[in-house]
Design a protein around this nucleic acid. Structure first.
Length: 846
RNA sequence: GCCCGGGUGGCGGAAUGGUUUACGCAGAGGACUUAAAAUCCUUGACCCGAAAGGGUUUGUGGGUUCGACUCCCACCCCGGGCACCA
């Protein structure tokens, strides 16, 4: 008798079997149809895997499983992004050494990742904190250095005064530390940077050719922030000085009624020959101190002060005052702007507050000679007025002419800044650089601009992270490694003099900027990557992950790929291709009962319990059934039951189907043919449904719409179970062997364990269902013989009639007009129009 | 403020110009059972009506169309991201 499916018995068993049989290990060296199914690897920074991780991995895995069955060699690796501040903070929180915690987390995470039933290629797993991995992360740093893409510079960084540590930009939320809520201050520190700005243009341009979630592309475009404009020089009266400003609106130059310089630039002046008035000096110093916090305060009023200096507007030779204000950024453009209050909201606000003149030069109601000043800045199109010889021109068209007129230089600015790569923390790959005082004094070194600096020779890599007791952040702006003499004392690789090793570690995002390359050959002891395999497997077929990485990981990883490509270190399969991921899809966010899951709310779902109670198959399907994958979903306990029932029904159906079939064969082996033939002739609705489902599921999985794919499988199951077949020996409709197998294969990516149990133990196949070819539908089976003709009167449905699929237009209209129900709405009037939509409806307009 | 999503039954959602609410959950009624669970069957937007039937309905208001959840315009609300980038 058909007993219930017991997931506890089967899931572990098949997971083990898949490992033994290497079901999900493709031939990395000679794949026939390589398909790299990559998903963002997790960072183990909590008690265990979050159900949100499982959501992401399951969706990607279902897609990968279909691709595998469609004949691709699918490579679906997994690993741990275990280095870095997330994991270190977790270790600090629970009071364990990060290196010890890593071992615990590794075991725990891998067990959990095993239990969700993904088709991971376990042989290729990697951990970023493994010296065999970070040896090559350091090697990449050295390559960046050698190619002039890594440099060192003094710059202000985010500093949390409570946690006594540097924070990365992404750890600053609304000007506050994401962990303790303390206001972040700025601190000047010497830092390592990667020249991502060199690639700004390419990173932007390449986006057009990428098949990525549109919101991610938009986020990257905004982050790169390309602006085309001009640099225009303003002379300063009575002094030899001049001020250069960057503007995207040279057409409004005649409306520039004052200049504003940033406090940073003002300070530079003060260090030079400028005698700042005491008031200004005070303002500059104060704003330099609290700038970052103030800027983020909502509804903050603009502040500023007059410098006492006047400049000359090069367009009309008018004298205009120079102000210093903190709404102008020192790090963007030239650090100075021309203020055109009539046509810029920020300048308008500033002019209003300090009663500075506002002059309209772009007029929306041309041909008025002058234009009244509006109560907000006018940023729209219009014609120029009050602009000398340019009067009457369309503002947009005059843009470059005016710039040229005053000798301005065309310039492109990017909002993107160089990537700050160094961290004053412990748990990361030490930056493989050595500084020699002796060489510095002699002004020699590997890079002219940075005397005394040498990369650690490649043969000496990795620079191992020592196991030290005092791994806590020091608060003094240096890494805890700076207290370890045995670590930092080295000899200069050039002159042999005593030198000092860099004690900062690199950003976690560098670890994750190349992991996908290492996956292809994680054991490689000779080089960072296996060029042949890289060329075969990349660009990846699909990359999936969270949208929160839109402008961090996803930008860094592209940058590194471009840089490696230019260094000649990687070549992808298509000639000239330099992007690693042609297709990227962001999964949605999983929430709980309408609210975000968070530890403070206590509503974080632990997948373990659900796997234990319902099984991985049920949880996988439930997560995918919630909503479209790219939209996210709302996790509610009650919904799990629906999937549990569905899988139970599948199990019972198959068991009964098998028992029934065996009984037929037992009586007389030849009966199977007769039996099958009978089925073939009796039931066409189910056959139609099967082929329709194959089409639907295939298309939906391809589009990552797993929710509707599951719904289609349910509809088919309901159909299979309805109306006892003519034979009367089995409840529900009877399928032929190939038909039942088609259904099972469609279900296999969603419920890999149960379908495998059925495939091999119930149906007796020798090899895995997950290596079976994906079912194809027969288009001729999809043709319906009849359809429901909808009859409308004035667009409202009044009747429906089942008609032959081949019905002619004339006949359909005739049927519609003959309908009794329709007649009562026509009231004997003559229809003005009768519209026929083939296979759909007739609309009678009266 | 700007950018991106989204607003459809009691709930998650389906439908991208053609029967609104597929599929699932919860609910109601019934069968089986000593009983419960499980399972199965029926029902299932709202209003009027005993019923037949009719009317209304996809955030709001307008428009295009024979026909609009779907396209266009304006507005409101929710979620997410960016935030003085000149």
């Amino acid at each position: 008798m058909a007993s219930n499916y017991d997931h506890k018995k089967f899931e572990k068993k098949w997971q083990k079997k898949w490992l033994e049989e290497k079901t999900y290990e493709p031939d990395l060296d000679s794949p026939k149809k390589p398909f790299y199914n990559l998903m963002m690897f997790p960072y183990p920074s909590a008690e265990g895997l979050h159900v949100g991780n499982m959501y992401a991995f399951t969706g990607a895995d279902i897609y990968g499983r279909m691709k595998r069955m469609q004949g691709n060699d699918v490579f679906e690796p997994i690993g741990l992004d275990g280095f870095g501040i997330h994991s270190e903070n977790y270790a600090l929180k629970i009071g364990v050494h990060p290196a010890d915690q890593a071992k615990v987390s590794e075991k725990r995470f891998y067990e959990q990742l095993q239990s969700i039933g993904n088709g991971f290629a376990w042989n290729e797993r990697l951990e970023t904190y493994d010296p065999e991995y970070y040896r090559w992360t350091q090697w990449l740093f050295v390559q960046m250095w050698k190619h002039g893409l890594a440099y060192r510079k003094k710059q202000s960084v985010n500093w949390c005064p409570k946690d006594l540590t540097v924070l990365s930009d992404e750890q600053v939320e609304g000007g506050k530390c994401e962990r303790c809520g303390t206001e972040v201050v700025k601190k000047e520190l010497e830092q390592w940077f990667f020249k991502i700005t060199d690639y700004a243009d390419r990173l932007l341009k390449n986006l057009d050719g990428l098949d990525w979630s549109e919101k991610v592309k938009i986020a990257q475009r905004n982050w790169i922030g390309k602006s085309e404009g001009a640099e225009i020089e303003f002379g300063i009266k009575k002094q030899e000085l001049s001020i250069k400003v960057f503007t995207t609106r040279p057409d409004t130059l005649f409306g520039a009624t004052f200049l504003v310089i940033s406090p940073e630039l003002a300070q530079k002046w003060m260090n030079g020959e400028w005698e700042a008035p005491a008031e200004a000096r005070k303002y500059i110093q104060e704003s330099l101190k609290r700038k970052e916090i103030d800027r983020l305060e909502e509804g903050k009023e603009k502040t500023g002060i007059f410098t006492g200096v006047y400049a000359v507007n090069p367009a009309n030779k008018e004298e205009i005052p120079v102000w210093v204000a903190d709404y102008v950024l020192g790090s963007y453009g030239t650090g100075a702007i021309m203020a055109v209050p009539a046509h810029d909201e920020r300048d308008f606000e500033f002019a209003k507050k300090f009663k500075l003149p506002i002059k309209m030069v772009v007029c929306p109601h041309y041909p008025a000679k002058t234009c009244p000043v509006l109560d907000t800045a006018y940023i729209g199109e219009g014609h120029l007025v009050d602009s000398g010889k340019f009067n009457g021109m369309e503002a947009r068209k005059a843009k470059w002419e005016i710039a040229k007129f005053v000798g301005g230089e065309r310039k492109t600015q990017f909002r993107l800044r160089d990537w700050l790569i160094s961290r004053q923390r412990y748990w990361g790959p030490p930056i493989p650089m050595i500084h020699c005082e002796a060489c510095a004094a002699k002004n020699v070194g590997e890079q002219k601009a940075m005397p005394g600096w040498y990369a650690v020779p490649e043969k000496d890599l990795p620079v191992e992270l020592p196991y030290i007791k005092n791994f806590r952040p020091t608060g003094s702006g240096v890494s805890p490694l700076a207290a370890e003499k045995s670590f930092y004392e080295v000899k200069c690789p050039k002159c042999g003099a005593p030198a000092r090793r860099e004690t900062d570690v690199s950003d976690t995002f560098l670890d994750s900027a190349w992991y996908y390359l290492r996956y292809l050959d994680p054991e490689n002891k000779k080089s960072a990557l296996n060029e042949k395999r890289v060329q075969k497997w990349l660009p990846a077929g699909l990359y999936t992950g969270g949208a929160e990485h839109s402008v961090l990981h996803l930008l860094y990883v592209r940058f590194m790929a471009l840089a490696l490509h230019d260094m000649g270190l990687v070549k992808f399969s298509a000639p000239g291709e330099d992007e690693p991921f042609k297709k990227f899809r962001a999964h949605g966010l999983l929430i709980k009962d309408g609210a975000k899951m968070s530890k403070s709310k206590g509503n974080v779902i632990n997948p373990d319990e659900y796997i234990k109670n319902f099984g991985a198959d049920t949880l996988r399907m439930y997560l995918m059934f919630l909503a479209p994958f790219e939209q996210g979903g709302d996790f509610r306990d009650s919904g799990v039951l629906g999937i549990e029932r569905f899988l139970k029904k599948v199990w019972i159906y198959v068991i009964e189907w098998k028992e029934n079939r065996d009984r037929v064969i037992q009586v007389e082996p030849r009966n199977l043919e007769v039996y099958t033939e009978n089925i073939r002739n009796t039931d066409t609705t189910t056959k139609f449904q099967i082929h329709k489902t194959v089409k639907k599921v295939t298309e939906d999985v391809e589009a990552l719409k797993f929710n509707t794919a599951i719904s289609a499988l349910m509809i088919l199951m309901n159909e299979m179970r309805s109306d006892p077949a003519d034979s009367g020996v089995i409840s529900g409709k009877t399928l032929t062997d190939p038909e039942l197998e088609m259904f099972l294969k469609l279900l296999a990516p969603f419920a890999p364990h149960m379908t495998e149990e059925i495939w091999r133990k119930v149906l007796g196949h020798k090899t895995s269902i997950h290596r079976e070819p994906w079912p194809e539908y027969d288009p001729s089976m999809l043709r319906e013989k009849k359809f429901i003709l909808v009859i409308q009167v004035n667009g409202k449905v009044r009747d429906t009639v089942e008609v032959d699929a081949e019905v002619t237009e004339a006949r359909a209209k005739e049927i519609a007009l003959a309908s009794e129900k329709v007649k009562t709405f026509i009231h004997g009037k003559k229809p003005q129009k009768v519209i026929y939509v083939p296979k759909k409806l007739v609309n009678i307009v009266i």
